[in-house]
Structure formats: C-alpha cells, structure tokens
Amino acid sequence: MSMISLEAVSKWYDSFKVLDACTTAIERGEVVVICGPSGSGKSTLIKCINALEPFQQGTILVDGISVGDPQTNLARLRARVGMVFQHFELFPHLSVLANLNLAQVKVLGRTRDVASERSLALLDRVGLRDQAAKFPAQLSGGQQQRVAIARALSMDPIAMLFDEPTSALDPEMIVEVLDVMSTLAQEGMTMLCVTHEMGFARRVANRVIFMDHGTIVEDVAKDAFFDDPSARTARAQTFLSKILQH
C-alpha cells in the first residue's frame, strides 16, 4: 500500500478549478519533488493531502485513511503528517522549545518532560540545541526553518510535506535547510516537496512531478526528468529551461 495516494482529485475555488483530476502515489520512503509555474496548484495539492483544504472530487488516502471521508478524525490525521511552510510559521510568542513541545503535549498527550527530551534531541539533530530557549524572532531565517522542520518531526510523522521551504531564504541559508532535508530523506522519511531547487531534486528525489494549470503534467523518475529532454513535454521543457537559467 502506498503511503499517500491520490485518485482523480479535483478542487474548485468557487467556479475556478485549481486541481484537475490529479492522480499519483507516493510509496513508503520515497522522495517526490513537485515543481511547476506559480499558480499551478502545488500548494493546494499538498494542503489537500493533510486536509488543510477540502477537495470536491476524487480520493486521497494517507496510510490507508481516507482524507475526504467525513468520519475521519482530521486533527489526528494531520498530527501524523508533518508540514513545513515557506514562511516557517513558528509561533512567535513561544520559545523554540515551547514551539516543539506544544503539540506533543496537547495532541499526543506527552508529559512536558518527555516532550522536552524529544524536542532537545530533535533540535540537536538540526544543530540548534543551544537555541532552545530563544524566541523565533531572535533566529535567522535558516535557523527558523530548521526549527520548523524539527517541530514537524516532534510529532513522529509518517510522512513530511514541504511547501517551498527555501524560497523565502537568503542563498547562504538555503544550503543548511536542504542539508537537513537530505539527511531526513537518507534516513528513509517519506517526503513530498514543492521546491524549485533542482539541485536538491537531482541529488535527493526519486521522482519529479511537474504541474501546470492544476493538472499533473509529468510524473516521472528523476533521471528521466533531468536527463532525457525528449521524454519531456514542451511545457515542462520551457519551465525547466527558465528556472535552470537562474
């Protein structure tokens, strides 16, 4: 069984069709990169996967649980899927440690001590254990994003979703975040990443999905996507040559 599977998922904002019959599957331990022009529906697609956005047609299964089923406990489902946002979205009124502890205590029911121990171990992993007592505003963007990744990991997720995790960062900070993500991938985490970091995709991804106008235009193995221009659609070709120029 796939970790995440989408079957003909469509979504509308009023009469505007944002997602058009999207079908794909992400296997356990697979790393899939989603790219595509602005407004193509990438963010919407991953928000649908952890039910931050409703969709009107099709089926999404996460670890066999149907996201669209009204019987599904969505809060519990979201707790099992980690999500990392473009603008970090750390809670500014809480310390770094409290950011990591909050959901562990409130959702998983861990004691504060157990949660703190887990949080500090994760902060160690992203190289920020010494920043635990600071507040988000006191950290650099790259540090904040690494804290956000650690916060998502604190829930022991079965999969991680990333929505352009490096696009709000200065170039020198992109590397430190991508390094954390690469390590995570090597450790076998199932990952779905919206990103235009094609170097990362080339090194780490198993597959690349190219979206345009709400449809999945290409969904191919990484090597085919990067090394076989003849296999690419004209739209993906144009898009790729544009972003690879930068």
Binding site: K47, N50, L52, A75, R76, R78, A79, R80, V81, G82, M83, F85, H87, E89, L90, F91, L102, A103, K106, V107, A148, R151, A152, M155
Partner: peptide, 18 residues
C-alpha cells in the same frame, strides 16, 4: 494574526479550540 499561523497550528494536529 496571519492565516499561516492557523494553518501551521492545525497542521500539527491541534483542534480548533487549541
């Protein structure tokens, strides 16, 4: 308070009241 904060909090599994 930005909409992103709400999304991030919900993504962690907190319910609406939390």
């Amino acid at each position: 308070v930005g909409a992103g904060q709400q999304a991030a909090a919900r993504a962690l599994g907190l319910d609406q009241a939390q």
